[in-house]
Amino acid sequence: MRNAIWAALATVQDPELCRDLVSLGMVESAEVSDGVAAVRINLTTPACPLKATIEADVRRAVLAVPGVEAVGVTFGATVRPPARLPLPGIKHILLVGSGKGGVGKSSVAVGLAASLALDGARVGLLDADVYGPSVAHMLGQGQGRITADAERRMQPIEAHGVRFISMANLSPAGQALVWRGPMLHSAVQQFLKDAAWGELDYLIVDLPPGTGDVQLSLTQNVTVTGAVLVTTPQDVALIDASRALDMFRKANVPVLGVIENMSYFVAPDTGQTYDLFGRGGARSLGLDVLGELPLDIDARQDADRGTPSVLAHPQSAVSLALRQVARTVAGRVSVQTLGSSLTSSPWPDAGSAVFCAA
C-alpha cells in the first residue's frame, strides 16, 4: 500500500511549479498503518501561498488509494537556494523599489519582511535609502546602535523576527549625509558583504527613490532574485514607477510584480470607500498586480510606534493584504528558482495568475 500512496502523490501537482510533488522532492515521508496514512510535505517556502490547496489535493489523492481510511498531512518548509548564492548564507535578495518617494515603499518593505518572518522564514532587511533611512524607526529601533563582532563585521539589529541594518543606527539622529556616489557605493558594499547577516532565506532591500548610484551598485555587484515595484495609483507616481521598471529590465533584474499602495480609503465612521488617488493605475505598467493596499490610519500609527501593522493589527485589511502579497512573492521566488512551464517571461501579463492547467 505504501507504494500505492507514493504513486498517488505523484499525481498531485504543485499549483505554481506545475510539477508533481514527488519529482520536486517535496514528499518528505509517506507511511500507512491500520488504514491511516501519514504524509509529510516539505514546502519550498514557509510562506507558501497555496498550502491549503496542496493539502486538499494530497488528501483527495491518498484517500482514493484502496484501504486508506484517513489521511494526516503535516508540513515542513525549506527555501530552495539558486544554483549560486548571491552572498554567503543568503539564498535570495529581493529589491523593493518605487522610482519616487512618498508612495510607502519603506512601509511595504517592512510589512513584507515582517510577514515572511511571521510565516517562519529567516529574513533580513537592508535599508539602502542612505539619505532618508526610516526602517529603524518603523521597527521600533530608532535609538539602537550597530555594533561589531570580534571579526569587525557589523551585527544587524533584530526586531520582530527581522534582522536589519540602517544608516539611522550608524549616524546621529537628524544628521544629513552629504555623500557623493563613491561613498554610497562603499556603504552599500559594506552593508551587504561586511555584515554578519547569518543564514537568511530572504534579504529584502529597501531601495532609495530614483534610479541612481545605490541601484547600480546593487544590481552590478550581487545576483538579485527579483524586484517588487511599489506605486500609488496616480499618474505622477506611475511615471516614475515606469522608469524604475525600465531600470530593472536594463539591469536584467526580474520584476516579480507591482504593489498598488494607498489604493483606496475606507472611512471608519461610514464604511464608505473613497479612491483618493484614483484606483487601478498600477495595471497600466503591464505587470501582475500583487496587491492593492488601502490607506489605513492604524497602519500609519503602527509605523510611528515601531510595530509593523501585520503584528499590531493582524486582521486589518492592509495587514491581510500584505500577508497575501508576501506569500505570493515567496511563491514566485520558488517558481523562479525551481523553474516553471513558462518559457518566455516567468511572469504573465497583468491580471492573470500562474497556475497549472487542471
Rank of each mutant, 00 (worst) to 15 (best):
C18D: 14
G280A: 14
I146V: 05
L229C: 05
L125D: 03
A61C: 09
V228L: 06
A237W: 07
Y274R: 11
D194H: 08
T232F: 03
D275Y: 11
L203Y: 00
G67K: 06
M154T: 07
P15R: 01
L207N: 02
G306P: 04
G35R: 04
N42H: 09
L207G: 03
V39W: 15
L290P: 00
P88K: 10
I259D: 08
R323C: 05
C18V: 15
G132H: 04
A282M: 11
V108A: 09
S98P: 10
A317R: 13
V333D: 09
P86V: 10
V335A: 14
K193E: 11
D246Q: 13
D235H: 06
A83T: 13
V266I: 02
A148D: 12
T44K: 05
V58G: 15
A52H: 11
V27M: 04
F265L: 00
E28R: 03
S29I: 04
D269L: 02
G226E: 10
A267W: 01
L87N: 09
L125W: 00
S345Q: 06
T328L: 03
L170S: 05
I297Y: 00
R2E: 15
M1A: 13
D119E: 13
A70P: 06
D213Y: 06
A136F: 05
R163A: 08
F248V: 10
V79M: 12
P268E: 13
M262C: 02
D129W: 02
N252C: 12
D34R: 02
V230R: 01
L216A: 12
V255T: 06
S217A: 13
C48T: 08
L177Q: 09
L256M: 08
I54A: 08
A241Q: 07
S242F: 03
G124W: 03
G210A: 13
T147Y: 10
S33H: 13
W197Y: 08
A168N: 00
P15G: 04
W197P: 07
V318I: 12
V228S: 08
T270D: 05
G104Y: 01
P46S: 12
L256W: 02
K250M: 10
